[in-house]
Amino acid sequence: MIRALVITHGRIGEELVRVLGMILGPHDGLEAMSNSHRSAQDITEAVKAWLDAGEPGAPAIILVDDYGGSCATASQLACAGRKDTAVLSGVNLAMILGFLTWRDSGDFPDLVSRLVAKGREAIVRLGAR
């Protein structure tokens, strides 16, 4: 099973995962983590521990809120040298919905590309004429 970790500032990730549970029901392999009160090194170690907790060699996706923030940096450092991992920034509900919908179909690079596209497509100006 492909797993995903949503790692963000404050409780953004925790709430995104909770809301997804309200929309799609309970789901395995989707967890949230906060960077609050943690050094970059601590966050990196926590992400490594999450990666290690999965099946050996199983693909994993890390979704972070901010492109240049500590979550993004720590996640990239934690994934160094690990095959079939991807760190995506700008996490939104559409990306997580896409992950849960598509993770069992297609190959890993294709899933990653679809999630990036899905996240971007979700940003639109509504009601514009």
Partner: peptide
């Protein structure tokens, strides 16, 4: 800053 380059900085 033990997070070095991050949002508060950039």
């Amino acid at each position: 800053d033990d997070r070095l380059i991050h949002g508060q900085v950039t």
